[in-house]
Simulated scan of single mutants.
Amino acid sequence: MTETETRTRTGTTTTRTAVRLEAVTKDFGTVRAVDAVDLTVREGEFFSLLGPSGSGKTTLLRLVAGFEQPTAGRIELAGNDVTATPPNRRDAHTVFQDYALFPHMSVEQNVAYALTVRGVRKAERLARAREALTTVRLDGFAARRPAELSGGQRQRVALARALVDRPAVLLLDEPLGALDLALRQEMQTELKELQRTTGITFLLVTHDQDEALTMSDRIAVVRDGRIEQTGPPVEVYERPATAFVAGFVGTTNLLRGEAAVRVVGRPGTYSIRPERILLTEPVERPVDPPAEPPAEAAAAADGRRTVTGRVTDIVHAGAHTRFTIALPHGDRLTVLRQNLDGLPQSARLDGEIGLSWDEKDAFPVPS
């Protein structure tokens, strides 16, 4: 079985690999949907493929499931080469966005279907189906038909059907996309708890940044068939590897050079998250450094960058208010302010307002 080494404070430990892709490429005619992707998902991990529509994330999931064959490269599950193995012989099950439940079957029959196909005896498959329904909190729903269930309940049935065969890997193809916001947030919590309880490796495909950040142990951000960055949610959010990741995972402000930091000789593009920017009263002193100051004098004494801008838009979004502010040199900043206390008097449309951020929060990203 393929294993990877990870370092801990007490030494080196060994982590088993659930899914491995090596230089996997997939072409559809002249279109390259996946371009030489290398990816490792650890056993027992909740891993998300995050990207916009058309980025190739669903194709990657279908390649792991066996619904598509790679043009080039190698796919492993639990250390076994399954590149040419058909879907029904891979130790992985898929939960689809539309759930794909059989309308003429009861909930119990839907859940037990895979066991029926495999020829498992009736008593055993019914016992395992009921166990799976208990796992997803659907006790007492066994006799109902899918049409008698809510969207969240149908989603749980689809999960139970995928779990009943105890796969090594559960593949989730945007399973929460059809749910309303409140139910989607509830199911995010339940999915993460289900993954922890079962210990099964979850590989999720989603375009929803909040969904990926909320549930995942690690995230791979996918763009144009390639992986831009892989890492824990906090790392991907706080230290984006590219401007695309900075802009796609959450909201960010991209500023160049001295617009972001006051240290001369630090060119490039910097990502500043909206919640890191403070609103103040307008700054009365000049904010741009002299033409050629010494490097030591170029940084603010307290390590903060302070500028003045004009409020062009205010959006109240429940727990926070979002401000759009135009800077004198033409850039626009988005600022998020928690609705906990009063705002500066100048925080009004067309008002001049001060902005301040710690230069350590201006993270450099490649252009």
Rank of each mutant, 00 (worst) to 15 (best):
Ala300Met: 10
Ala291Lys: 13
Pro282His: 10
Leu254Trp: 06
Pro286Met: 15
Gly354Lys: 02
Pro267Ser: 04
Arg262His: 05
Gly247Ala: 02
Gly351Asp: 09
Thr269Arg: 12
Gly318Pro: 10
Gly330Pro: 06
Val335Gly: 02
Val261Phe: 06
Asp350Tyr: 05
Arg332Met: 02
Pro290Asp: 10
Ala300Asn: 09
Arg304Lys: 06
Val283Trp: 02
Ala243Gln: 05
Pro293His: 14
Ala259Lys: 10
Pro294Leu: 14
Asn253Trp: 04
Ile353Pro: 01
Leu340Gly: 13
His329Trp: 12
Leu343Gly: 03
Arg256Val: 11
Pro274His: 02
Pro290Phe: 12
Ser346Thr: 05
Pro282Trp: 05
Thr269Gln: 14
Ala295Glu: 05
Phe323Leu: 12
Tyr270Gln: 09
Ile272Trp: 07
Thr269His: 14
Leu254Phe: 09
Ala298Val: 04
Asp331Gly: 00
Leu349Cys: 01
Ser271Asn: 08
Ile277His: 07
Pro282Ser: 12
Val307Ile: 06
Thr334Lys: 04
Gln338Trp: 11
Glu281Gly: 03
Ile272Thr: 04
Asp313Lys: 02
Ala317Tyr: 03
Phe323Trp: 15
Thr324Asp: 05
Val311Tyr: 04
Thr324Phe: 01
Leu343Trp: 15
Asp331Met: 08
Pro293Met: 14
Val335Ile: 11
Phe323Ser: 08
Ala246Gly: 01
Gly303Met: 09
Gly303Trp: 10
Asp341Pro: 09
Pro289Met: 07
Gly342Leu: 15
Gln345Lys: 14
Ala347Trp: 02
Pro289Ser: 15
Ile325Thr: 01
Thr308Lys: 09
Pro328Val: 03
His316Glu: 15
Phe244Ala: 02
Ala300Glu: 00
Ala347Val: 10
Arg305Gln: 14
Thr308Tyr: 10
Gly351Tyr: 09
Gly342Gln: 14
Arg276Thr: 12
Arg273Asp: 00
Pro344Trp: 04
Val249Met: 00
Gly342Lys: 15
Thr321Arg: 13
Ile314Met: 10
Leu327Ser: 07
Gly309Asn: 07
Asn339Ala: 06
Arg348Lys: 13
Arg332Phe: 01
Asp341Lys: 15
Ser356Leu: 04
Arg337Pro: 04
Pro344His: 04
Val311Gln: 09
Gly268Ser: 02
Ala297His: 13
Thr252Ser: 13
Val261Cys: 13
Pro267Lys: 13
Val249Cys: 00
Gly342Asp: 15
Gly257Thr: 06
Thr252Met: 10
Val249Tyr: 02
Pro289Tyr: 08
Asp331Val: 07
Arg285Phe: 08
Arg266Leu: 14
Arg305Ile: 06
Arg305Ala: 12
Ala299Arg: 12
Gly309Cys: 06
Arg273Gly: 00
Ala347Phe: 08
Leu349Asp: 04
Thr251Asn: 05
Ala301Leu: 08
Ala246His: 00
Leu255Val: 09
Ala297Lys: 11
Ala319Pro: 06
Arg310Asn: 02
His329Ser: 09
